[in-house]
């Protein structure tokens, strides 16, 4: 488990992360979503023990990641700006990783490189951006760590490779309970694979929730009432988060399960009624509007 307690980090007086709190459970995929400059990379670098928080602490399985270097063997960090030794080829990096990660699986690593079509002996600096990402995915999975931190790792991969990487993650999760933290500005990418998602904005966490819970408990309803005086819904335990009216057609965002919502509105005997599941984007917009944010133009 990764526990983030009240961390802050400034760069030259500019606050990159402010009082961030989060918990990331084991054997799950956690998505970090946010625009450029929202603090995703800074958070990941702190979680990886590369940067020290100015305030607060990050605990990995109960140990402080900055204070206890041994903890770092439990995690592999795929940084957005790839690091490798000058003139190193994959086989040189393999030697380095083997020293650092006691469970590094050489044969698995070589097998993945072959599957990705990457030459073990070719210099990494001659790799394309996407090939470097592939190399680091192979290394990150072969390192057999409990945590894999990925900073925009999927951006820059072609669609086939994305699917392949997701399949490899799925296998590692079932085989050894891998936990993946994925930072991305692409909401659609995260929607399919994450268990829970944290929405970052200006260095803080706006929202951090289980994805399916969010999807199950918020719905869009389109309704035309029989008479033009809709009942006071809040009184009946149904919470209407947002309401828009166009002519007789009301579009509501309703908090509640699909069944509850359906039952409630059917009982009003509407002329027209439709229950539409929300996309993750719409959920974020609704959830953060309540908190007083307008994020419509923040989501890519």
């Amino acid at each position: 488990m990764i526990e983030v307690k009240n961390i802050s980090k400034q760069f030259d007086g500019y606050p990159a992360v402010q009082q961030m709190n989060m918990t990331i459970g084991d054997s799950s995929v956690f998505g970090l979503i946010g625009t450029n400059g929202s603090g995703k990379s800074t958070f990941l670098r702190m979680a990886a023990g590369v940067l020290r928080p100015d305030e607060g602490e990050i605990l990995i399985d109960g140990a402080l990641v900055w204070e206890e270097p041994g903890v770092k063997q439990k995690l592999f960090f795929i940084s957005d700006d790839a690091f490798f030794f000058q003139n190193a080829a994959p086989k040189d990096m393999e030697e380095f990783y083997c020293k650092y990660y006691p469970d590094f699986d050489r044969s698995r690593f070589e097998e993945m490189l072959r599957a990705f079509g990457l030459d073990r002996g070719r210099k990494l600096r001659a790799f394309s951006k996407g090939m470097k990402k592939q190399f680091f995915i192979a290394a990150g999975l072969a390192a057999n760590t409990k945590y894999l931190l990925c900073d925009e790792t999927f951006d820059g991969l072609d669609p086939v490779m994305r699917q392949a990487a997701k399949s490899l993650f799925a296998e590692a999760m079932t085989d050894r309970g891998l936990t993946v933290v994925l930072a991305s500005h692409n909401l659609r990418e995260l929607e399919d694979i994450c268990d829970s998602v944290g929405l970052l904005h200006k260095g803080g966490v706006l929202l951090s929730k289980d994805l399916d819970d969010m999807k199950e408990n918020l719905h869009k309803v389109q309704i035309v009432y029989r008479d033009e005086s809709p009942k006071d819904a809040d009184a009946d335990g149904i919470e209407i988060v947002r309401e828009e009216t166009r002519g007789r057609l009301h579009t509501l965002i309703v908090r509640g399960t699909a069944q509850e919502t359906q039952q409630y509105f059917n009982a009003l005997e509407p002329v027209f009624f439709e229950l539409i599941p929300l996309s993750l984007e719409e959920i974020f917009i609704s959830e953060t509007e309540v908190a007083g944010y307008d994020i419509k133009n923040l989501l890519a």
Partner: peptide
């Protein structure tokens, strides 16, 4: 198996489990 289906569909095994 959960692993097999998750890998085939390229989705999170927890989703299949659920």
């Amino acid at each position: 198996s959960v692993r097999g289906l998750a890998s085939e569909l390229s989705i999170n095994p927890n989703t299949i489990q659920r």
